[in-house]
Simulated scan of single mutants.
Amino acid sequence: MESRDKDEPLETRLVHVRGRVQGIGYREACVRRATALGVSGWVRNRMDGSVEAMLQGSPEQLAEMCAWLSEGMPAALVEELEVTDVQPPFARFDSFERMPTL
C-alpha cells in the first residue's frame, strides 16, 4: 500500500459509475483496489443502479483508481464514468470505506 505524507497536496474527485455495477461485488473490489493504491474516501450504491465514489489522493493515485473503476473488474460493464473535481476546502479521509446505499 502506498502511504501519503500528511502535508502532501491532495485532490478529491466525485465519481459516478453507470452500467452493470451493482450485485457483482463491485464495491468490495473497489475498496480493495483503493486501499492497495493508498486512495481514501468511500463508495456506495445509488438507488438508480449506479455506484458513486468519493476519491482522495495524489493525481497519479486518482488516475489509476479512475482507470480501474472504468475497466478493472471483469464482471462489471461500465457504460459511463463521470468524474467531477471537488474544490477545497474538503474533509480529509483517513481510509476507504463502503457506505450505505443512497
Rank of each mutant, 00 (worst) to 15 (best):
residue 68 W to C: 07
residue 81 L to Q: 05
residue 27 R to V: 02
residue 86 V to F: 02
residue 69 L to N: 06
residue 45 N to D: 03
residue 29 A to L: 02
residue 25 G to L: 07
residue 80 E to N: 12
residue 7 D to F: 10
residue 47 M to I: 08
residue 63 A to Q: 11
residue 88 P to C: 08
residue 74 P to I: 09
residue 99 M to E: 12
residue 41 G to H: 10
residue 10 L to R: 15
residue 7 D to C: 03
residue 31 V to R: 11
residue 71 E to K: 14
residue 72 G to R: 04
residue 101 T to S: 11
residue 39 V to I: 08
residue 95 S to K: 12
residue 72 G to H: 04
residue 94 D to E: 13
residue 25 G to S: 06
residue 47 M to C: 10
residue 89 P to F: 06
residue 11 E to Q: 15
residue 30 C to I: 01
residue 50 S to W: 03
residue 25 G to R: 04
residue 77 L to V: 11
residue 68 W to H: 07
residue 15 V to W: 04
residue 92 R to C: 10
residue 45 N to V: 05
residue 54 M to S: 06
residue 13 R to D: 00
residue 2 E to A: 15
residue 29 A to N: 08
residue 94 D to K: 15
residue 4 R to F: 09
residue 64 E to H: 14
residue 68 W to P: 05
residue 19 G to A: 02
residue 92 R to H: 12
residue 57 G to T: 04
residue 58 S to I: 10
residue 45 N to K: 06
residue 11 E to D: 09
residue 79 E to A: 11
residue 61 Q to A: 14
residue 83 V to L: 06
residue 43 V to I: 01
residue 74 P to M: 08
residue 28 E to S: 13
residue 55 L to W: 07
residue 71 E to A: 15
residue 30 C to H: 00
residue 6 K to R: 10
residue 19 G to Q: 05
residue 28 E to T: 12
residue 87 Q to P: 00
residue 66 C to F: 10
residue 96 F to T: 03
residue 80 E to S: 15
residue 22 Q to K: 05
residue 3 S to P: 01
residue 102 L to Y: 13
residue 78 V to W: 07
residue 68 W to G: 09
residue 69 L to D: 00
residue 48 D to H: 06
residue 86 V to Y: 02
residue 91 A to Q: 12
residue 1 M to R: 13
residue 71 E to Q: 14
residue 91 A to M: 10
residue 62 L to D: 03
residue 69 L to Y: 00
residue 2 E to I: 13
residue 64 E to N: 14
residue 42 W to C: 09
residue 69 L to E: 02
residue 49 G to K: 06
residue 99 M to Y: 12
residue 61 Q to W: 08
residue 14 L to G: 04
residue 21 V to T: 03
residue 12 T to C: 13
residue 81 L to G: 04
residue 23 G to S: 03
residue 32 R to L: 13
residue 31 V to Q: 09
residue 7 D to N: 14
